[in-house]
């Protein structure tokens, strides 16, 4: 570990050099961070869609579904990380514990978002679609879901951006991702402050959050061409 500091300047602005010196290692961390930030949200969305649909369609299921997901969302991420293995019978520090915990989070957030998004579809629109002969499932995919896209996209933005930060927390309990740059920096900072890995970690996390956020925004625009048509 100490070897990392050899010869390098400890100035905060030298994070670029630090990156270049440890390029392959840092890119590996960035890659696993990205993977951990994105995949759980996608899996979470795939699970949340049917749940949100059920919560809308059968009103009596709404309160229980929302209460359960609300409780899950309330549990702090780090607690969820350590609770997932015993609850699912996995080994402690199983590589799947963090993705599973993050997926649980994404589901908890997105179920509500999907239900809200579907609720944002005007009643007349659904009724008109039904009157035109759409069957329920067909109506869901061809009418309700497209109209709900903007609301769901807003939820996805929150989910990915917060995931980037949460994944870094997982780094503090030993998982390999950008969070490890903070651990390295912290350890290298005794006795004297050594900033480059810390600053690099922050910069890469922010960049990743911004890129993922923009990707969702872009996706939303591609999926809802009609919203651009009315913009003046």
């Amino acid at each position: 570990m100490i070897a990392l500091a050899d010869g390098a300047s400890s100035s905060p602005l030298h994070f670029v050099e630090y990156f270049l010196d440890h390029r392959s290692e840092d890119l590996g961390l960035l890659w696993s961070h990205t993977w951990l930030s994105v995949v759980p949200v996608i899996v979470g969305l795939l699970i949340a869609l049917p749940l949100g649909w059920v919560a809308r369609r059968h009103r009596w299921t709404y309160p229980p579904i929302m209460s359960i997901t609300g409780v899950l969302y309330t549990i702090p991420s780090i607690a969820l990380f350590v609770l997932v293995p015993p609850l699912l019978g996995l080994d402690t520090l199983d590589p799947l514990q963090v993705p599973i915990a993050l997926t649980v989070y994404s589901v908890a957030l997105l179920v509500r978002v999907v239900a809200d998004g579907l609720a944002s579809v005007p009643e007349e629109t659904t009724q008109a679609a039904t009157a035109m002969g759409f069957r329920p499932l067909e109506r869901f995919f061809k009418v309700e879901l497209p109209i709900a896209v903007p609301v769901i996209a807003a939820g996805l933005r929150v989910a990915v951006v917060s995931n980037v930060s949460i994944v870094a927390v997982a780094g503090t309990i030993g998982l390999s991702n950008l969070g490890q740059l903070f651990t390295q920096g912290f350890q290298l900072s005794t006795p004297d402050a050594y900033y480059p890995p810390i600053v690099l970690g922050i910069v890469l996390c922010v960049l990743l959050a911004v890129v993922l956020d923009s990707a969702v925004v872009l996706l939303n625009r591609v999926l809802t061409p009609w919203r651009r048509a009315v913009r003046t």
């Binding site: 980037v164 930060s165 927390v169 503090t172 969070g179 903070f182 912290f186």
Partner: peptide
């Protein structure tokens, strides 16, 4: 501010302030 990784900022501020 929400895009900032909390752990990173925590470590950074600690390294700056604690000495």
């Amino acid at each position: 501010l929400r895009a900032l990784p909390t752990v990173g900022v925590l470590v950074l501020l600690t390294v700056i302030i604690s000495p």
